[in-house]
């Protein structure tokens, strides 16, 4: 079994109020060196065997159309294991 990992993050210029709330909580808990947090999503997509490069390209298409909204988000795709 192998996994394709898709990570989705808000673009830098898009306000991330969740990340800001997490960042504020970390500072409150004493992690004073933290200067900021951005929160994103990670998708672990399982395949029966190591995916072919065509299959990875298919997942890139899925990331672009479904998993990420490219108006506000960026994504990365990589194979793991």
């Amino acid at each position: 079994m192998a996994k394709i990992i898709v990570e989705v993050m808000l673009k830098d210029e898009i306000l991330d109020p969740q990340g800001q709330a997490v960042s504020a909580a970390m500072v409150r808990l004493g992690f004073n060196f933290v200067t900021g947090v951005r929160q994103g999503k990670r998708f672990e997509i399982s395949t029966a065997s190591t995916p072919t490069s065509d299959q990875v390209k298919e997942i890139e298409k899925a990331a672009e159309t479904l998993l990420a909204n490219t108006v506000i988000e960026n994504f990365t795709v990589r194979v793991e294991g």
């Binding site: 808000l10 898009i14 306000l15 109020p17 969740q18 709330a21 909204n69 108006v71 506000i72």
Partner: peptide, 17 residues
């Protein structure tokens, strides 16, 4: 409508959460 690209832009979490 934004997700369908019939309208531009996107709607995100309210700034005060």
């Amino acid at each position: 409508l934004c997700e369908s690209h019939l309208l531009p832009g996107a709607l995100t979490r309210n700034h005060e959460l």
